[in-house]
Design a protein around this nucleic acid. Structure first.
Length: 848
RNA sequence: GCCGAUGUGGCGAAAUGGCAGACGCAACGGACUUAAAAUCCGUUCUCGCGAAAAGCGAGGUAUGGGUUCGAAUCCCAUCAUCGGCACCA
């Protein structure tokens, strides 16, 4: 790099202040009982989504949200809050392990290196994290409690009567293993051969693994599951009171996917069994001309006839081989097989054929449907393909084609409900079914139970052992369960977890073997915000008092502001809420929700307006930016780019512009003497402010304060630029105005603000203390007001002239002044003035 | 296909019912300099009438309509881009 002279010595002052902050531990937030804890201060918990420390290091997208939260954190401290602003590492899981496998090093080693790199990068940006609270999900002192939470899930059940999680002891049924919130099931899972593990539905995108983009196939395996579906209704309802973007709430609602309808039992013709179906349109029951089971449905084996057996078996094998991708790609063409069996439509008492088809999913509803081809697109397509009868039972209100009509209309050909509009028909037929014991109203959710085990090495081991084919949870006292130091931790590829290779480790006792699956990546991040409240506690996952204090307040959610990317809208944010509710129900937490306010930062694109990626070569590394322009410029540019939540492209020119602004701030106070040393400018004097100066000082306080509160950092910076432009070239610079300005600047550019503050302190004795200890200034609305304002005069909405009026002028005075204005008179002459609208202090509109 | 977000100068953007383009970038001109960089000052939406400047007029916030004295902002329709879901019965 050329030895261009730096516009101001950021390369010296930035490390200097970072060292001072660290030495004095200025951003440590004391808990109750610690020294310097002030119970009079209100708490403010502001949280970033902690990163996966990948090998690539930080890119400029990470610090966008982090800078926003840091500004708020520093601002809130100056406003007298006790601010919890922590950082940690989400270091278990697939990305870390894939990287380790690629680089040939043990994940523990690469994780340690990556954490060190991320931490040093974050420190260079000057974030005011309380590093005493740093946590790492791969630390046994941390994952001990992740395992402990798993035990809480294992040892509890969801009581539908109380609508709460309760200790398993309160369960009165025979087999508690059927209701535990953590349970084992043989289920068709998303198996990714390349990654050697199963994945959660949420981790599969378009039939490929979210990480790596490898093919994923369906395959039945014995897995640990978490009964999140029991909480579907609460996860839905309790969204309402959260201050989250509506879009994110909607994503979660859609993911949970609640539908109201009915469950209806169809008798099998000539058999004892019943097949239960779920439908949102029980009013179309009379139109049910056939029935479809999911190919994997357990009743298929029992009902299939001799002659149809080969065709059914062939079809089932074919669908089982299909990956999710194929199943959706081939969705245009319906497939299926006839079982040879018949069911009785409970409304019409007609015999209808039972088919299997892969457009019916085992995991949703009851895994079976009554086919109503006239009023369902998919059923219609299926019926046409296989030549099944189509019977209209809903009459559209408009002139639409009744066949394939899926909207609401009037029930026809349905004796029990003929003539009723759809909604009423639904109510009536549901009642009709209930009276006859044929069905009942029901609610179904798209949300599935959470597949919680992974066949990998780099994750939390389960605190579970197996004894004569049965699982048993370990006692709390046996935690943490530490994984063995395996040399060969690569996935086996067979579905057997790598931990199975540790022959000594898995032998728990003569009778018992350890569970060899590990928990998924999301486990550690599900509760890390709780651990931050009390990270050193080795008696409890979080101390009661600490949790009450930091997660307290009068809203349902504990964290006051949570900033992170939209990509976690349904994964992390849903899982966290689920765990939180379980822990809350069991009496371990004081609030039902983790995060009160959520803000998503937008993605930062490369200079070419494309998503940053290695292959495009458009990645910007924060270290390079800081080398050239300094951390303060980096921070300010990240915020000046545009609204926080918006997607926006990076621009090095833009960084330069912001760096110029900071250099102007520096030179406003400092000048270079003949020995090329920086010294305080003689223009800085202890003098009173002129009226115009006072006005701009107070306008800047107002704008910056309000903009920080509304997270509009870009316009806050613009206002500070206006301030500097206004004071540049002033003959004398009142020290009080500069002090106020530096306080406002401090959350954005803390290094330069601290340094200049120190320079002022060295010469002027008017104020004591460090920059970071100063109180946030307040503004006086009276000092903002000008004596005179310019008022725009419009004729028919078009600006025709302006005039200066006293701020005190009445509406009447403004009106007559406008009408007397010669230009306006000229323009309105010969016309009748019909109306005059006066907006005080702003404008007059003459309607002629 | 369904749901959601966004659309304003050469570029990032501001203004959320009252002067469109604050602030910054870029470009151009000037000052300083032997020169350059840096810095400081100024100009820059489009078209028309002015020799030119000042000035004046008209148009302009994706497109077409509407509400209103007044619309980037509210309503309806269309188009484009981005994101999510996608046989969920």
């Amino acid at each position: 790099m050329s030895e261009r002279r730096k516009p101001y010595p950021f390369d010296q002052i930035e490390p200097k202040w970072q060292t001072i902050w660290e030495e004095r531990q200025m951003f440590h937030a004391p808990n109750a009982g610690e020294k310097n804890f002030d119970p009079a201060k209100p708490k403010f918990y502001i949280l970033d989504m902690f990163p996966y420390p990948s090998g690539a290091g930080l890119h400029v997208g990470h610090p966008e949200g982090y800078t926003a939260t840091d500004i708020i954190a520093r601002y809130k401290r100056m406003r007298g809050c006790n601010v919890l602003h922590p950082m940690g590492w989400d270091a278990f899981g697939l990305p870390a392990e894939q990287y380790a496998i690629k680089s040939g090093q043990h994940p523990a080693v690469t994780t340690r290196e990556n954490v060190a790199k991320f931490k040093s990068q974050l420190k260079r940006i000057g974030f005011s994290y309380d590093w005493q609270r740093e946590i790492n999900t791969t630390d046994p002192r941390y994952y001990k409690w992740t395992q402990w939470i798993f035990l809480q899930l294992y040892n509890s059940w969801f009581n539908p009567k109380t609508n709460k999680a309760e200790p398993i002891k309160s369960y009165r049924g025979k087999n508690p293993d059927e209701v535990r919130l953590a349970y084992v099931a043989d289920v068709p899972v998303n198996w990714c051969a390349e990654l050697g593990t199963v994945l959660a539905n949420e981790e599969v995108v378009d039939g490929k693994s979210e990480i790596g983009g490898f093919p994923v196939v369906r395959r039945p395996m014995r897995q640990w599951m978490l009964r999140i579906t029991k909480f579907a209704q609460r996860l839905l309802d309790e969204l309402d009171a959260l201050d989250w973007p509506e879009g994110i709430k909607l994503l979660q609602r859609n993911w949970i996917g609640r539908s109201e309808g009915a469950e209806i039992d169809f008798k099998i013709d000539g058999g004892q069994q019943k097949i239960r179906v779920f439908t949102t349109r029980p009013d179309t029951l009379y139109g049910g001309t056939y029935m479809v089971l999911a190919p994997e449905h357990s009743l298929v084996d029992l009902i299939v006839t001799e002659e149809q057996w080969p065709a059914v078996r062939e079809y089932r094998e074919r669908t089982a081989r299909k990956s999710d991708l194929e199943r959706t790609e081939l969705s245009k063409e319906k497939t299926g097989a006839f079982t040879g069996a018949y069911a009785i439509n409970p409304a019409t008492d007609e015999k209808i054929p039972i088919w299997i088809a892969d457009y019916v999913l085992l995991g949703y509803g009851t895994g079976a449907i009554g086919g109503v081809p006239a009023h369902d697109e998919r059923d219609l397509e299926f019926a046409r393909k296989f030549d099944l009868p189509i019977r209209q039972v809903v009459q559209p209100l408009g002139g639409e084609d009744p066949i394939g009509f899926i909207g609401e209309g009037i029930a026809i050909n349905s004796p029990a409900i003929d003539g009723l509009p759809s909604r009423e028909a639904i109510r009536k037929i549901t009642q009709w079914l209930e009276e006859r014991g044929l069905g009942k109203g029901a609610i179904s959710y798209k949300l599935r139970d959470w597949l919680f085990s992974r066949q990998r090495y780099w994750g939390e081991p389960f605190p579970v052992v197996w004894e004569s084919g049965k699982h048993r949870a370990l006692d709390e006292s046996e935690l943490p369960v530490v994984p063995p130091p395996l040399d060969d931790y690569k996935p086996t590829g067979t579905g057997e977890p790598p931990l199975a290779k540790a022959k000594d480790w898995i032998r728990y006792s003569d009778e018992a073997l350890r569970e060899t699956n590990v928990m998924p990546q999301w486990a550690g991040s599900c509760w890390y915000y709780l651990r931050f409240c009390d990270p050193q506690n080795d008696k409890r996952f979080v101390g009661e008092k600490a949790e009450k204090y930091w997660m307290g307040g009068n809203k349902p959610g504990g964290v006051d502001l949570y900033v992170g990317g939209t990509e976690h809208a349904v994964l992390h944010l849903l899982y966290s809420r689920f765990w939180h509710k379980v822990l809350f129900d069991l009496g371990n937490l004081s609030k039902p929700e983790p995060f009160q306010r959520l803000v998503n930062q937008g993605i930062i694109l490369g200079e070419d307006n494309q998503k940053m990626s290695k292959s495009r070569g458009n990645i910007v590394n924060p270290d390079d930016v800081i080398d050239q322009y300094g951390a303060d410029a980096f921070r300010c540019y990240e915020m000046f780019m545009g609204p926080l939540e918006q997607m926006k492209p990076w621009s090095m020119r833009g960084v330069e512009g912001v760096a110029r602004f900071l250099a102007r701030v520096w030179r406003l106070l400092m000048r270079e003497n003949q020995a090329s040393e920086w010294e305080l400018s003689p223009a800085v004097q202890d003098v009173d402010l002129m009226k115009a100066q006072q006005r701009i000082v107070h306008a800047t306080i107002k704008k910056v304060t309000e903009d920080i509160e509304s997270l509009s950092f870009n316009t806050a910076i613009a206002q500070m630029m206006i301030f500097v432009n206004a004071f540049t070239n002033a003959e004398s610079l009142p020290v009080s105005a500069l002090r106020t300005f530096l306080i406002l600047l401090n959350p954005f550019a803390p290094h330069i603000a601290s340094e200049l503050w120190e320079k002022l302190n060295a010469k002027f004795k008017d104020v004591r203390g460090d920059m970071a200890e100063q109180a946030w200034p307040t503004y006086d609305e009276r000092l903002l007001a000008e004596d005179e304002v310019e008022i725009v005069i419009q004729v028919n909405g078009k600006v025709r002239d302006r005039m200066k009026m006293s701020i005190l002028a009445t509406e009447e005075e403004i009106k007559s002044a406008a009408l007397e204005n010669p230009r306006i008179r000229e323009l309105t002459s010969g016309r009748t003035i019909r109306k005059v609208i006066v907006v005080p202090k702003k404008l007059v509109n003459v309607v002629a």
